[in-house]
Simulated scan of single mutants.
Amino acid sequence: MSDNGQPLLLPPTRARIESLALEALARLPDPFRSHLSNVVLFVEEFADEQILKEMGIDDPFGLTGLYSGRPVGEPVQTGDSPPTVHLFRRPLLDEWVETGVPLDALITHVVVHEIGHHFGLSDVDMQVLEDMVAP
């Protein structure tokens, strides 16, 4: 309880963000889900400085998610790491508070956008897919 007797609300944890992301992935239509078994999901507080520098982003709150890897259909090279989706908790929470968008909808938006890169989807295609899996 807080000093004024109200329940103390804690921000969603990494585990909660991961759970919402996995729920979003589970709502994807089967043709997409069947190509995600090798994609690794990470939830981190922020992108590291190297990633921000490579992307030309000065503010660590400016990046909510990142896809790394070869899109589906591109030949795999020896030594390739598995494709990854990184979600950055603190920027996501800031965007959630600033926009008022429900957290599950925000996480779904970012997950679909990052997974869209895995499939080489256009922004329009990502929006259609997001509309299909909205919570």
Rank of each mutant, 00 (worst) to 15 (best):
D3W: 10
E95H: 08
N38R: 14
L9M: 10
F88C: 08
D59R: 03
F88H: 10
I57Y: 04
G62A: 03
A15V: 06
H35V: 01
H113P: 06
N38K: 05
E23S: 15
P82I: 02
G73W: 06
L25K: 04
V43P: 00
L28I: 06
E49I: 02
F46I: 03
L92T: 11
D80S: 09
R70A: 13
G79H: 01
E95R: 15
F42H: 15
L52N: 03
D104W: 01
P75V: 10
L103W: 05
H113L: 04
G73E: 12
V85I: 12
V72I: 15
R70Y: 03
R33W: 07
E45S: 14
V128L: 12
F46K: 03
L9A: 07
Y67F: 15
S81E: 14
V124W: 04
P135S: 07
M132V: 06
L87H: 11
I51K: 02
G56K: 01
E98G: 05
N4R: 12
I115Y: 03
V43A: 04
L103S: 11
Q6D: 08
G56R: 08
I107C: 02
K53A: 14
D104R: 10
E44N: 05
L87S: 07
P135F: 02
V128R: 15
E44P: 03
L129S: 10
P60W: 01
L28G: 03
D94A: 07
A105D: 15
P7Q: 11
G5C: 07
T84R: 15
G65H: 05
H117L: 04
T13H: 12
G73L: 02
D104Q: 11
L63Q: 14
D59W: 00
G69C: 04
D125V: 06
V133M: 09
A26P: 03
D104M: 01
S2M: 11
G5A: 15
K53P: 00
L93W: 02
V112R: 02
V43C: 06
M132G: 00
I107E: 02
V39G: 06
P75R: 11
V133K: 08
E130C: 02
F46E: 07
E98N: 11
P29V: 11
A15K: 11
L129I: 08
N38D: 13
T78E: 13
P12Y: 00
L66H: 10
L52K: 06
E18A: 15
D3L: 13
E44M: 07
F88V: 06
P102S: 07
A21K: 11
P102K: 01
D59T: 01
R14F: 05
E130V: 01
G73Y: 04
F88L: 10
D30M: 13
S34Y: 00
R27G: 10
L36W: 11
G79T: 04
P83Y: 07
E98P: 00
L129P: 02
S81F: 12
M126E: 09
L63I: 14
G73P: 08
D123R: 12
L25E: 14
A15F: 04
Y67I: 03
I115R: 05
M55F: 02
T78H: 08
L20C: 08
P91Y: 03
F42K: 15
P83N: 09
L9N: 01
T13Q: 09
D131P: 00
W96F: 14
E23P: 06
H86C: 12
G5S: 13
L93D: 09
D94K: 14
L10M: 08
I57P: 05
L121S: 05
G65F: 05
R89I: 09
F119L: 08
A105M: 06
G56H: 05
